[in-house]
Amino acid sequence: MDTGFLRVLFDPGRFFEERMRGEAGLKIPALIILAYGIVGAVAAALMVNVIIAILPGEAQAYAAFGIAIAVIGALIMGYLMWIACAVILYAISMIFKGEGTFTRTLEFTGYGFLPQFIGSIIGAAFSYQIISNLTIPPMTNIEQIAEVSESLAGIIATDPLMQISGVLSLLFVLWSANILIFGMKYARNLSTRDAALTVGIPTALYAVYILATITGWV
C-alpha cells in the first residue's frame, strides 16, 4: 500500500531507498517543517497569550504584536532546527567518510521531523491542558510580572503532565532518530553502524538534555 511520504514513519528503509532513485526534492520536507513550525507557533501563541493576559491594560495593546512575534519566531525556529540538524548530521557523517550531497541530507532530515511534528501536536495539547488550568492574578508592576513569570515556569516545570510530555517528546525524538538512521544510510551512503553512530551521538546528547530537564538537573 502506497501511503506516500507517511510511509517513512513505518518503513523508512524502503522509503529512502526509493527516494534515492529520483532527484532530491525539498518541497515535502519543507511542508513538514512548516507544519511542525505551525504547531510550535500555536503553542507559543497560547503561552504568549497567557503572559499578555497578566500584563497591565496599557501593555495589552501590544498583544497582537507579541503573538505575531511568537508565531514568526516559532516558524523560523522550525526551519533553523531543520538546517542545524542537517548540518550536524552531514558533518558527523563526514567522519565516517559519508558520500552524498547536502541537499539529500537536508531532504531526508526533513522527513525525519515527521515524528517530531506528531509529537509537537501532543505536546501542544498537554501544554494547553496545563495552561488552561492556571489562574493568574492581574499584575500592576514589572516586579510582579517577573515573579509570576518565574512561578509560571516553576508550575509548568513541576506539572506531571509536562513531565509526561517530556518523556513523550523523547520517544518521538527516538522515532525521528530511527528514521534518520535510514535516511543517513542512504543520503550519505553509510553502513548501518556508521549511520547509527552519526545519528545516535547527537540524539544521545539531546536525550540526556531532555532527561536532565525532566528530572530538574538543569
Binding site: N133, L134, T135, I136, E143, S151, L152, I155, P160
Partner: peptide, 17 residues
C-alpha cells in the same frame, strides 16, 4: 506574586495522561 495552580485539577499524576 505567584501564579495560582488550579484547584480543579486532580492532585498527583494524571492517570489520563
Amino acid at each position: 506574586g505567584t501564579a495560582a495552580p488550579s484547584a480543579e485539577r486532580d492532585e498527583g499524576i494524571p492517570m489520563t495522561g
